[in-house]
């Protein structure tokens, strides 16, 4: 084949492939536009005032299609599937307690998105913001409203691509003291100082004393529940195979996801509750794999997200292993209850 023919073959192939490529991009962008229109039968969402002090309400990220998609919205805690009030603040992950909120949001740059954590006051005004080095995953505020923590997934090595690590940060919203990574804390494991390049932390939950927290530590393929001390900057292992701990309001139990043997590797977790005094584990009555940091609605009820038609739905379950789970609302994630 002559050079001319070969170039002709290449050019016609490139044209055909370019048509396919452009069509796929147009198709995807048309689909993206549909998400900005409200779906018939979806929850009713209207703009209105949302405050972190509206007691008796649940505040969460609204995932229903329409103009208020991804905004913080609130509903009465007793009627979670009722009409939603939207705040205009967009968050990927959210949590709030005692009038302080933390919102992990995307910042659209010229090429790719970056992420930041913003600290919100009770009227949802931004009081501080911090760079988040990867895809937001977990967010928590201490029961007193003083400390905020968040976790992001970091895919650092562009050649490996699948090499994931996490970065967990804690900030004192009162003093502004900022700990960009828990990996600077001294780790005490089995009574000894422990070091490893593969250490990862995620899923912080705070004790009301404004000094102690719990989190997940992962290293060498195992996960541990650690108790952290913000003053001595140490963490100590407490229990094995615990991810995304969530401390009960009375401070006696940890709800968490446990990796259970024999389950598929992309859905390996079951919800458990750990009694911190006896270290006794109680499996909960949820038969699906839960990948969320559960929220305690009160001392006896847990709320968590499961995948749903519009991203995620919220479900509720007793914390003592009894009962059956039931869905409380659709197209919602990252709930926080205002007491």
């Amino acid at each position: 084949m002559s050079v001319r023919n070969r170039i002709l073959v290449l050019v016609s192939a490139v044209v055909a492939l370019a048509v396919v490529a452009v069509a796929s991009v147009l198709h995807a962008s048309a689909r993206a536009q549909r998400r900005d229109q409200a779906q018939p039968g979806g929850p009713r969402v209207t703009a209105g005032p949302v405050a972190l002090t509206d007691s008796g309400r649940m505040i969460f990220r609204n995932m229903a299609w329409g103009p208020h998609r991804d905004e913080l919205t609130s509903v009465p805690a007793t009627d979670p599937s009722g009409p939603r009030t939207a705040s205009h603040i967009k968050c990927l992950r959210f949590y709030a307690a005692s009038g302080t909120g933390v919102c992990l949001q995307a910042v659209h740059g010229p090429v790719s998105d970056t992420y930041r954590a913003v600290i919100l006051d009770s009227r949802l005004r931004i009081t501080a913001h911090y760079d988040v080095p990867g895809i937001p995953s977990r967010a928590r505020v201490s029961p007193t409203g003083r400390f905020a923590a968040w976790t992001a997934f970091v895919g650092g090595d562009s050649y490996a691509g699948t090499d994931f690590s996490t970065r967990t940060a804690i900030v004192d919203t009162r003093t502004g003291t900022y700990i960009p990574s828990l990996e600077t804390f001294r780790i005490e494991k089995d009574g000894r100082t422990y070091r490893s390049p593969d250490v990862n932390f995620w899923g912080v939950t705070f004790v009301p004393d404004d000094r102690t927290f719990y989190a997940t530590l992962a290293t060498k393929g195992h996960t541990y529940l650690v108790r952290g001390d913000l003053r001595s900057r140490t963490v100590t292992t407490v229990h094995a195979n615990v991810e995304c701990p969530s401390l009960s309001p009375d401070g006696t139990r940890i709800a968490y996801k446990k990796r259970v043997a024999g389950l598929p590797k992309d859905a390996p977790w079951r919800l458990y509750v750990l009694d911190l005094r006896t270290l006794r584990e109680t499996p909960l009555a949820e038969s699906r794999s839960v990948d969320d940091q559960a929220v305690w609605r009160d001392d006896h009820t847990l709320v968590y997200a499961l995948p749903g038609d519009y991203g995620a739905d919220l479900h509720q379950l007793p914390s003592d292993g009894t009962g059956t789970p039931h869905r409380i609302t659709t197209a919602a994630v990252s709930p926080a209850y205002v007491h």
Binding site: S24, V25, A28
Partner: peptide, 15 residues
């Protein structure tokens, strides 16, 4: 492409 399509991962893979 992701910017033009808002999470159009399928478009990225096709291109």
């Amino acid at each position: 492409i992701l910017r033009a399509t808002v999470d159009g991962y399928d478009a990225v893979f096709t291109v």
